[in-house]
């Protein structure tokens, strides 16, 4: 038998269990296998009852996020061999701070609601007629928000954020970064609308710049940076409205 690696997988069945538990599985340790391959091996060959989400296997769909040895990871991009030398089994748990529906599947409606609340789409005061052509954008203008547009909504950043864990009303890293993605877009005119939501305590001001959201992001979005930059913007706007109370809204 080839080399194996032990996985300790979080199990929770809402019908059967009052409390979650860990189940141990031994899977072949292959150089080209990621954690998701190991889970699929378990489901196909060992225990068909294991439940988890996955789709694209290439870091685009954002559905296979889990806690791997306590860190939020896309399991399709986390190689088993990186953990082969570590003591003890590899722990796979559902993403932290979200309610668990079953095994490794979490409920992320909270995130979806928050994402919608920041209006992550282009807002125009007045649409120009189609005959006038498209809204043009220079590469420089694209560069301003491109990094934030890479987000795949995998919610790893929420599982990395202690502020979200401690205070679930916090809008959270990805939603704020995506709001910034539209705020920074030269075609967008919705910055003021979004500020009403973002400049609350539950918005940017809850963030204490732990910075872990940025570290775990598989797409290098840098939500922590987006939030700090937005704090500066909101502060400048606040002082402007203080100096010119009757100025622009």
């Amino acid at each position: 038998m080839a080399e194996t690696i032990s996985l300790e997988v979080f199990r929770y069945s809402p019908e059967r269990d009052a409390e979650p538990s860990f189940q141990r599985y031994d899977v072949p340790l292959r150089k080209d296998w990621v954690v998701l391959d190991a889970l699929n091996y378990i489901k196909d060959k060992v225990d068909g009852s294991l439940t988890f989400r996955w789709s694209c296997r290439m870091g685009i769909c954002g559905s296979c996020g889990m806690m791997v040895n306590g860190e939020p990871k896309l399991t399709c991009a986390t190689f088993l061999s990186n953990y082969a030398r570590e003591q003890g089994p590899l722990r796979v748990q559902p993403l932290r701070y979200f309610p668990v529906i079953r095994d490794l599947v979490v409920e992320i409606t909270d995130f979806m609601t928050k994402l919608q609340s920041v209006k992550p789409w282009l807002i125009r005061g007045k649409e120009k007629p189609i005959s006038e052509g498209e809204y043009l954008q220079t590469p420089e203008q694209l560069d301003r928000y491109k990094q934030f547009s890479m987000c795949i909504n995998c919610v790893l950043c929420y599982s990395a954020c202690p502020v979200y864990g401690l205070d679930p009303v916090f809008i959270g890293p990805a939603a704020i970064a995506l709001a910034q993605r539209y705020n920074m877009d030269s075609r967008d005119e919705g910055a003021h609308e979004r500020m009403d939501i973002l400049a609350q305590h539950e918005g940017i001001w809850g963030c204490t710049f732990v910075g872990e959201c940025t570290k775990v992001c598989p797409k290098h979005v840098d939500p922590a940076g987006a939030i700090q930059q937005y704090k500066l913007t909101a502060t400048i706007e606040r002082f402007k409205s203080f100096l010119m109370p009757r100025g622009a809204k």
Partner: peptide, 13 residues
Amino acid sequence: MAKQSNEPVLWAL
């Protein structure tokens, strides 16, 4: 803006 919070002032300080 909906409500003027003190947070920006405190954060600036």
